[in-house]
Amino acid sequence: MLEVKNLTKRFGSQEVLKGISLAISEGEILFVLGRSGTGKSVLLKNIVGLLKPESGQILLEGREISKLSEEEYFEVRKMCGMVFQHPALFDSLTVYENVAFGLRRHFPGMTPEEVKKRVTECLDLVHLEGVEDKLPPQISYGMQKRVSLARTIAVEPRYLLFDEPTTGLDPVTTNAINRLISELSRKLNTTSIVVSHDMHCALEIADRIAVLDQGQLIALGTPSELLKSQVPLVKDFLAEITEEDRSRWLS
């Protein structure tokens, strides 16, 4: 259970989040949609403590985490994995070392064999084989994004935060990543928050969808509820959805 209560965040004089309240239950997939620059990524970064909110609370399984120090956040980050918008792979380390990086920090007691097994497992999960010894610049952008995903899920976080996981990818990889997100939730009961622009994917795999506009939550509901929404921005987002798809999701 992850709860965000009345969260506000300011950069200088600009208020990016103006009192967001959200609750995500165990195993749920929540999509956060909105135009660029409405504070979607800022919301995620507040949850994992990369940014500190001005006011409001973040409750992770009932524990207030927004006031923790950098060391205390260590435990939180072990539970909450974040996949970044950029692949954010460490340039100087190989793909294998990248995936093993978090494992070595979070589980210092693991033997090298266990690490190797886990890394191979995670790379299989994102359908990557034979790239372990390559450096990040030597593989394609789509592959880098998948490695980044593997690196995050390697430590088996119970909460996964995705910052635009499919932006800039080809349709095939996009589908693969979306399938992976829903598989993870179903199989491992992982809770996911996905920040995205893509209404199509959201309707496809989300349990609930939230729409942000100018730092405020303007709509929140299941896909079928959202399809019936009368909020103008939500209708704009839904404009590209064909009647055929609409009826399929509603039924």
């Binding site: 970064k45 994992v48 990369l50 950098e70 260590f74 980050r77 072990k78 994995g81 974040m82 970044f84 954010a88 792979l89 460490f90 340039d91 990086f101 978090g102 920090r105 979070h106 980044s148 690196r151 995050t152 430590v155």
Partner: peptide, 9 residues
């Protein structure tokens, strides 16, 4: 990459 590093503890 620096944020990712922090997230990985």
């Amino acid at each position: 990459q620096i944020d990712a590093m922090r997230c990985l503890g």
